[in-house]
Design a protein around this nucleic acid. Structure first.
Length: 272
DNA sequence: AGAATTACCTGAGCGC
DNA sequence: TGCGCTCAGGTAATTC
């Protein structure tokens, strides 16, 4: 598909930063829901529980956004096609504008998601114990995620390394695009059984995952993400979406295969 | 336990 | 023009 914007971890992180700047310290005034079900049901109590509450913090766990509202947490996942916009003042909702969160001062946070793969829900207790969050592995940008951790996680695993790093129980928030990019950068074939990687390869891959994510967050930070939409910087993607095009390193045409029914692009000459 | 498969959803693109 | 089909993909649930 052309021009498809899938929010990956960098997009979610840049969105988090914008929400943090704009919303922390602000109070919900009104919530309007025009949808009953996204990937999960959108609880009706949102419209009752949020007004009057103050946003204390905005945090990210994998691709989940969490607004700390004191007595509970608003959890948002953008799924495949979701994004958040920040608007000032009244604005009539467009198609697929499913939820509006109005804040004091006239600020409007709007959730838009054509495919409804996103999630908006309320967590009353400790978010770390919530079923959606309690099995998620370490953050890829944290110190906990390193070559040694990844090597341990690979032990006795027969799945392809690409599928392993896309498993959120192993590492949080690595989606298809950056899995492809990180494997290219670390010169490892995506279809290698995870258990066959050496410790040194795991070290390279862990560094590459961090690098591609951090680079993208840096590139994205110059864009007005949460106000408009999330945006990729396609020029910096070296393999994803480039089947048949020339490898940026050796010039040979990139190959495409499927792993776990996901598009997988790599260079058979550079990646071993 | 781990691996493989399915389900959820809509818009775009394609063949006819 | 439009119908029907396929594909895109995050993640949890289900099945093997």
């Amino acid at each position: 598909m052309k021009g498809e914007i899938v929010p990956e971890l960098p997009e979610v992180e840049v969105t988090r930063c914008r929400l943090e700047e704009e919303l922390v310290g602000k109070r919900f005034v009104r919530v309007v829901s025009r949808v009953t079900k996204l990937r999960l049901p959108v609880p009706e109590l949102l419209v009752r529980v949020l007004p009057g509450l103050l946003v204390r913090a905005v945090v990210r766990r994998g691709k989940y956004l969490l607004l700390d509202c004191g007595e509970g947490w608003l959890l948002v996942h953008l799924g495949m096609s979701g994004f958040l916009r920040l608007l000032h003042g009244e604005s009539p909702p467009a198609r697929h504008d499913h939820l509006d969160f109005l804040f004091e001062g006239g600020l409007l946070l709007r959730f838009h998601d054509p495919r409804k793969f996103g999630i908006v829900t309320w967590i009353a207790g400790d978010p770390g114990e919530h079923p959606l969050l309690n099995k998620i592995g370490p953050e890829p940008l944290s110190a906990e995620f390193d070559g040694n951790y990844l090597f341990s996680a690979c032990r006795s695993r027969t799945v392809a390394i690409k599928q392993l790093i896309m498993n959120s129980a192993v590492v949080a928030g690595v989606g298809n695009i950056y899995a492809n990019e990180a494997l290219f950068l670390s010169r490892i074939r995506p279809d290698r059984p995870a258990g066959k990687l050496t410790r040194e390869e795991c070290q390279r891959l862990a560094v590459s995952i961090r690098t591609v994510l951090e680079d993208s967050i840096g590139a994205g930070s110059s864009f007005r993400v949460a106000e408009e939409t999330v945006s990729y910087h396609p020029l910096q993607l070296k393999v994803y979406g480039r089947r048949g095009a020339s490898c940026t390193v050796c010039g040979n045409p990139l190959k495409e295969t499927r792993l776990g029914n996901r598009s997988t692009v790599f260079c058979e000459d550079c990646q071993k």
